[in-house]
C-alpha cells in the first residue's frame, strides 16, 4: 500500500533551491507576574530569530535550557502566536498563501516526554490512525497505514498495535510518537529533545531509525537538543541560541572546526571528555545563564564573556559573516568595524 492512497504527500512547489522553511525576525515575549508585590515582567523568550531550512537538510538547534528552543519550534508550527515575524513554507507565507491548518499537516512535531504526548486511552494503532482520520481518511485505511508505519519504526504490529501507551517502554513510546508524526505525510518534522529522555543504548537505536526514515520518506528535520553530541551527529547545519537569540550558525564542520562566538566555544569546551588521560581541567566559563527577564544589555553574553569590552554592553552585535560560507556569528570580534579591540579577529580573512 502506498502513502498516496492514504493521505497525499504535499507536492513540492518552489523546487529544490527554494528553502523548505524560512523564518524571518521571529519574536515572542511572555508576560509573567513576578509574585505578590512584584510588577509584571517580560520574558524575551525568542527575540528577532531568523533561520532557514533547506529541503532534505537537518538543522540542529542547540543551547541551554530556557534559551528559547522550544518556543521557536512552537512558533513555527503555530502552537503559540507570534508577536512579530514571518514564516514561509516552501516559499508561501503562512497565514496568507497557506493556512495554519495546512501548515500543521506539513510540519509535525515530536516531543521529549513520550508519555505525556500520547492519549492513555487509545491503543497504539488508534493513536497513529487518529490524525489521518481527522483529515478525512477512511478509518480502515488509516488503521492499515498505522500498522504499516509501526513496522517501519521497528514495532511488530501483531505485538504492539493493540497495546496502550503504559504497556510500552520509553524507547517504544518514542517510536510510536514518530510513527504518529509520519502518519500525516509531513515534509518537515521538528524533533524537540526527542531522544533526551531515552537511555543511551536506546537513544542510539532511535537516532538510527530517524536517519533511515529521513531517507525513506524524503524528510527534512529540525532537531532540537541541549546535547551537543546528538546535534553534531545528526545535523548538517547548527543554530546556537543564547537567551532568546541566535548567536552563531553554520555548517556543522565549520562550526566544529572553529567556533567563533565565545559562547559556542564555551559550550563545546564544557562537553565532558571521554578520555581518562585528558580530563577537563578548568571550567570554560563561570556562573549560570542569566535570567531571561531583563537580559543583559548589548551582547547578552557579556556578563560571562572573557572578551567583554564596553562596546559589548552598549551595542547589540548582529549576526555577521565569518568568511566561511553560511557561517555567521553575532560577536563584536567578528565584525571588523565594531570598535572592539579584537574587531575582525574572528571575521573574514582571520
Amino acid at each position: 500500500m502506498s502513502e498516496a492512497e492514504v493521505l497525499a504527500p504535499v507536492s513540492d512547489i518552489g523546487g529544490p533551491a527554494q528553502p523548505l522553511l524560512q523564518v524571518q525576525n521571529l519574536s515572542k515575549h511572555f508576560t509573567v507576574s513576578g509574585g505578590l508585590f512584584a510588577r509584571k515582567s517580560v520574558v524575551r523568550a525568542v527575540d528577532d530569530v531568523s533561520l532557514s531550512v533547506d529541503k532534505g537538510e537537518v538543522v540542529g538547534i542547540v543551547g541551554e535550557s530556557g534559551c528559547g528552543k522550544s518556543t521557536t519550534a512552537r512558533l513555527i508550527i503555530g502552537l503559540i502566536e507570534t508577536d512579530e515575524g514571518t514564516i514561509l513554507f516552501d516559499g508561501e507565507t503562512v497565514g496568507s498563501a497557506i493556512s495554519l491548518r495546512e501548515l500543521r499537516r506539513r510540519v509535525q512535531m515530536v516531543f521529549q516526554d513520550s508519555y505525556a504526548s500520547l492519549n492513555p486511552r487509545l491503543t497504539i494503532e488508534d493513536t497513529i490512525a487518529f490524525g489521518p482520520k481527522v483529515h478525512g481518511v477512511d478509518p480502515e485505511k488509516a488503521r492499515e497505514h498505522a500498522r504499516d508505519l509501526l513496522r517501519r519504526v521497528g514495532l511488530d504490529p501483531a505485538v504492539f498495535a493493540a497495546r496502550y501507551p503504559h504497556e510500552l517502554s520509553g524507547g517504544q513510546r518514542q517510536r510510536v510518537n514518530i510513527a504518529r508524526a509520519l502518519a500525516l505525510s509531513p515534509r518537515l518534522v521538528i524533533l524537540d529533545e526527542a531522544v533526551s529522555a531515552l537511555d543511551k543504548s536506546v537513544e542510539a537505536q532511535v537516532l538510527n531509525l530517524l536517519i533511515d526514515l529521513k531517507e525513506q520518506f524524503g524528510l527534512t528535520y529540525i532537531f532540537i537538543s541541549h546535547d551537543l553530541n546528538v546535534i553534531r551527529f545528526i545535523s548538517d547545519r547548527i543554530v546556537v541560541m543564547y537567551l532568546g537569540e541566535v548567536v552563531e550558525t553554520g555548517p556543522v564542520e565549520a562550526l566544529w572546526d572553529r567556533p567563533r562566538h565565545p559562547y559556542t566555544q564555551a559550550l563545546f569546551a564544557a562537553m565532558p571528555s571521554l578520555d581518562p588521560d585528558h580530563r577537563t581541567q578548568k571550567p570554560p566559563i563561570a556562573g549560570d545563564p542569566p535570567n531571561p527577564i531583563d537580559p543583559p544589555s548589548g551582547c547578552r553574553f557579556h556578563t560571562r564573556c572573557a572578551f567583554a569590552e564596553p562596546v559589548c554592553s552598549s551595542t547589540v552585535p548582529k549576526l555577521a559573516p565569518t568568511g566561511v560560507a553560511l557561517h555567521l556569528a553575532a560577536c563584536h570580534m567578528v565584525d571588523p568595524n565594531s570598535g572592539h579591540s579584537l574587531a575582525g579577529s574572528r571575521g573574514p580573512g582571520s
Binding site: A204, L207, V230
Partner: peptide, 20 residues
C-alpha cells in the same frame, strides 16, 4: 560503542538491540 562522541555524521550508530 553506541556513544555519540566522535561518531561520524549520517552513519548508523552501533546500537545495542532491545531494551533492559
Amino acid at each position: 560503542a553506541s556513544t555519540l562522541h566522535g561518531a561520524h555524521r549520517g552513519t548508523r550508530l552501533q546500537a545495542i538491540p532491545g531494551a533492559p
